[in-house]
Computed example of a mutant assay.
Amino acid sequence: MKSILKTSLYMALAAGALTSAPTLYAQSSTPLKIVIGFSAGGGLDNMSRALAEKLRTELGTTVIVENRPGAGTQLAVQAVKRAAPDGNTILISPATPFIIFPLTYDKLGYDPDRDFIPLAHLADAPMVASTSVNSSYNTMSEYLAWVKQQKDQTGVGMVSLGGTVHFGLLNLNKNTGHSLQPVAYKGAPGMLTDEIGGVLPIGIDTVGGQSELQRSGKIKYLGVTGTQRTPLLPNVPTMSESGAPGFELSTAWYGAFAPAGTPAPVVEKLQAVLIKIVKTPDFSASMAQLGLVTTGLPASALSQTIHTQREAFRPVVQKSGFKANQ
């Protein structure tokens, strides 16, 4: 009974927030700004622009997307930290600035826990290991058996060092006794070009960044990160299922945040409307085309995810001795 009452109360609050949200924003001449730390054209940018269109309708106000790439998204994060806490600025961020950067930077220009209020967990961006379609191995276990015999082919491609994939690879080495080496690329295209050409035995990136090449028969998938298979690739096993334990927490996601000090009623309204949008079937379907799985989880779930993943990675990062450059 308590559970039913709690659920009913949450639904009533959410409904109330949605009802009053248009009134709140229609009274302001200041546009609602979504800030992201990437250039235009990528998966996060496309999702943010789709969200902006929906928010315009839901809130009855102008919504713009501001691209502030640089410093591994830190320019965007710090811009939102400095923004007025009035509900007119939202950060949409990947996991790394909130999970890994606090562990790898001696000094950050923000405190991920004190300077922001979580609004909602918006989407997962499933990550998958891939290789050339001409490779002799078809599973992670076959790849690990192959690489044992190839002492000069231990590189594993990724788009940056110091992220969840990097430390997942260190976990894999610890669990299996391998000495695989992370190879950082400036972007997925370069990594995938080397995969297709046989220069790089294996690479790991988001499904969205690789799906076109997989559909065209140039690469094949070996395993997805995380603890569960993704609905985008139901026939591809997890890395652990495929004999490569260590990447269970190496997941990618996008969450929404407001500057600390944003009034609670505004936070509640934004949380409710964001969850409503990403749970809409047509929005979810359009995001799946980008390689994203919408979630629509409340702020409490986002906060729990951040702290759980950060603490799980803490000993791995400390043991590695890795430090990010300022």
Rank of each mutant, 00 (worst) to 15 (best):
T227I: 13
L192I: 11
D194R: 08
L161S: 10
V183F: 00
I196P: 08
Q210H: 11
T164Y: 00
S211T: 13
T193P: 03
S211F: 14
N175A: 15
L169V: 06
Q228P: 04
L161C: 08
G223D: 06
S211V: 13
V183D: 00
Y185E: 01
G163L: 09
G163R: 01
T206H: 12
T225R: 00
R215Q: 15
I196V: 15
A184K: 04
Y185T: 08
I219C: 08
P182R: 05
N175V: 09
V183T: 10
S179T: 09
T227S: 14
F167S: 00
V165D: 10
G190W: 07
L200Y: 08
L172K: 04
I202A: 03
G190H: 07
G162L: 02
E195I: 15
R229M: 08
I196W: 06
I219A: 02
G208T: 05
P189C: 09
V224W: 05
L200G: 11
G197H: 10
E212G: 09
G223A: 11
R229T: 12
Q210V: 05
K186I: 05
Q228G: 04
K186W: 06
D205F: 13
G197Q: 13
F167D: 03
G162A: 07
G203A: 14
G168E: 02
G223S: 07
A184Y: 03
K174H: 11
V207P: 05
D194C: 08
G163D: 13
T227G: 08
S211Y: 13
G223E: 07
Q228M: 12
Q214K: 15
D205Q: 15
Y185Q: 10
A184I: 11
E195G: 12
V224Y: 02
I202M: 12
P189G: 07
E195K: 08
I219E: 06
V224S: 11
L161A: 14
V165H: 13
G162H: 01
T230D: 14
R229V: 14
V207Q: 10
T225W: 00
S211R: 13
I196A: 06
V199F: 09
S160G: 10
T176N: 02
P189Q: 06
L192S: 08
V224T: 15
D194F: 07
Q228T: 12
D205V: 13
G163S: 09
G198P: 03
A184C: 07
V207G: 01
G217V: 10
P182V: 01
P182W: 00
I204P: 04
T176I: 05
N173S: 01
L169M: 06
S160P: 01
G217I: 13
Q228I: 12
G209E: 15
Y221P: 07
G226E: 04
G223Y: 06
H178F: 04
L180I: 03
M191K: 04
E212D: 10
S216P: 01
K220M: 09
A188M: 10
T225G: 07
G203L: 00
G163N: 14
G198C: 12
K186S: 15
N173Q: 00
T206W: 10
I219T: 10
P189S: 07
S216R: 12
K218H: 15
G168T: 01
L169T: 00
Q210L: 14
G163V: 06
S211W: 12
G197P: 08
L169K: 01
N173M: 01
H178Y: 01
R229I: 12
L192D: 04
G168Q: 08
A184M: 09
I204W: 08
Q181F: 06
G223L: 07
G187A: 15
K174W: 03
G162T: 05
L170R: 08
L172Y: 02
E212W: 10
